[in-house]
Nucleic acid binder design. Structure first.
Length: 288
DNA sequence: CTCCAGGGATGAT
DNA sequence: ATCATCCATGGA
């Protein structure tokens, strides 16, 4: 490993490894004492040394923006609800920041995330990058950028199915074609208020409420967005409504928006990551 | 082997 | 308006 870093980036209240392992992005890989990954089209190497990052492959400004080092994390955490579940999660996730990811890459990876474990989302991302992305080198290591919508748009559904996408192939292809044809402009959507943005994203094939909220949170800087997946729903039910059985559709969404408020996305990400990393794997039937 | 995963779209009550 | 079913795949 010969990547030598010259550039230092101040990064207080930041945990690089924790952030990269929190299920926001799915392609960074451990290398030496740091991580290699792509930031848009650039191959980047990042090492954390205490309260700063040592980086190679991209300007400090690009890296700082990607990892949202400008977010006032202390203020955000201080404003989170003061209940036991939230406190336990936020202590567990100290230094975890909500990233600013490229819009298409974020949208596409979450379209492929449906009913998939994080490990397999990573595998799908890797295969798509290696087959259809652009090779980028950094020192003696290399990686592949995420394939552009124009590239995927020219493929056949079978090409994507061969990347183990299953039924998600049709949705990814259809969405890529809408963007490549300029029927949909992801950058333009950034001007919309939350509700209109969510509605626009949900109009894309393979995008429902949960995926739309992930893209809003991880790529559109909408820190109110509160994606509810199976993990978060489990936490909400068990920790916030331990006696309830039935919920109206949207009832948990409504509660979360009201209860967690302006930084709900951070609350959600902390609850998600804490639950995913501390819930023991169910014992196999044979071992019980 | 079985169970489950950062769901969404569709059609039946 | 809710509920059921189907959709593919592989890690644990």
């Amino acid at each position: 490993m010969t990547v030598c870093c010259g550039v230092q980036v101040p990064a207080p209240d930041f945990d690089l490894a924790l952030t990269l392992d929190s299920g926001q992005t799915f392609h960074w890989e451990s290398l030496g004492k740091g991580f290699v990954g792509a930031i848009d089209q650039r191959a980047v190497y990042v090492v954390q040394r205490g309260d700063s990052l040592e980086i190679d492959g991209a300007p400090a400004k690009v890296v700082a923006r990607y990892f949202s080092l400008d977010h006032p994390l202390a203020e955000i955490c201080a404003a989170l609800p003061n209940d036991p579940a939230m406190m336990a999660a936020s202590v567990f996730c100290r230094g975890l920041r909500i990233m600013r990811q490229p819009k298409w890459e974020c949208l596409a990876t979450f379209i492929t995330s449906s009913m998939k474990q994080v490990a397999h989302i990573r595998q799908i991302s890797r295969t798509l990058r290696e087959r259809f992305g652009t090779r980028r080198s950094l020192g003696n290591t290399h990686l592949y950028s995420y394939p552009l919508p124009e590239v995927l748009a020219d493929l056949e559904e079978s090409d994507l199915r061969h990347c183990a996408l299953g039924y998600r192939a049709k949705n990814l292809l259809a969405t890529a074609r809408m963007i490549a044809s300029e029927e949909m402009d992801l950058e333009l959507l950034a001007k919309l208020p939350d509700d209109a943005l969510r509605a626009a994203l949900c109009a894309l094939p393979g995008v429902g409420l949960k995926v739309a909220n992930c893209v809003m949170l991880f790529a559109y800087e909408r820190l109110r967005a509160f994606p509810i997946d199976v993990w978060v729903e489990r936490v909400l039910r068990e920790k916030y409504f331990p006696r309830r059985r039935k919920f109206r559709p949207g009832e948990l969404q409504k509660f979360s928006a009201q209860y967690f408020g302006a930084h709900g996305g951070y609350a959600q990400q902390y609850l998600f990551h804490h639950a995913r990393k501390t819930t023991p794997r169910r014992l196999s039937v044979r071992d019980r």
